[in-house]
């Protein structure tokens, strides 16, 4: 149980999340010793302040959730987030460039962001719900080659989240070159455990407490 909590990025990315909600998220992350909180970049400094003197990291999303902003804008957002205290960055891959087979620009987009966070953790969100298997393989390769520390399945704002099938593909490409983060729709202990058994090293979820306490919807019926 204890080490399961270290897999969790305790996540609140809703556009309407208030500062009080972010403070509560941080308190919960401290209580349950989650790996990080994952927040929008406007809340990086607030989260950093709340998590002073704790082990919980601040993870910030960039170019979120569409991934369609200019590379320069992603870089600027990343730099500001780091300045505000973020230690991990979850950026969204440029899906339009990927679909256009403009792989050079997909690569540059990721590489430029990685340059801002050379010693920190960069996760690249592939938004797999919009990709076919071949595109998932290509996107995984591009992300890893351009410096991603993690490849991540989903934003939680697409048409669906992580699936076992997708995670298996990503894991087979990543091998030991990069780690895999599963996110989107992971709400209980059983599902989290299933992904971890596949070799997933981080789980993005807003149901972290339910996962680590084992009080999942499936258990509630007993």
């Amino acid at each position: 149980m204890e080490n399961l909590s270290q897999y969790i990025d305790h996540t609140l990315l809703s556009a309407t999340a208030t500062s009080d909600a972010i403070k509560q998220l941080c308190e919960e992350a401290k209580t349950y010793q989650f790996h990080a909180v994952c927040v929008n970049s406007c809340y990086a400094s607030l989260a950093n302040e709340q998590l002073k003197n704790s082990q919980v990291k601040v993870c910030c999303v960039v170019g979120f959730p569409l991934g369609a902003m200019s590379t320069e804008a992603k870089v600027a957002e990343t730099k500001q987030a780091i300045l505000d205290g973020a230690e991990e960055i979850d950026m969204v891959i440029n899906l339009g460039y990927l679909k256009s087979k403009n792989f050079d620009d997909v690569w540059t987009d990721i590489e430029e962001v990685k340059k801002c966070i050379p010693n920190g953790t960069l996760k690249v969100i592939l938004e797999t719900c919009y990709l076919d298997d071949i595109e998932i393989i290509k996107a995984s390769e591009l992300a890893i080659q351009s410096g991603a520390d993690y490849i991540k399945t989903s934003t939680g704002f697409g048409t669906s989240g992580a699936t076992i099938h997708v995670v298996k593909i990503m894991k087979s490409v990543a091998q030991d070159y990069a780690k895999v983060k599963a996110s989107g729709g992971i709400k209980d202990y059983e599902t989290a455990k299933e992904y971890i058994n596949l070799g997933v090293e981080r789980i993005g979820t807003s149901s972290g407490i339910a996962i680590v306490t084992g009080i999942s919807s499936s258990n509630k019926t007993y």
């Binding site: 556009a15 929008n40 970049s41 979120f64 320069e72 804008a73 600027a76 500001q80 987030a81």
Partner: peptide, 18 residues
């Protein structure tokens, strides 16, 4: 876009670049 939840600095930069 579309959440409006990026830092002000990021919005300013994105706008200038655009």
């Amino acid at each position: 876009f579309p959440l409006g939840a990026t830092s002000t600095e990021a919005k300013v930069f994105e706008a200038k670049k655009a």
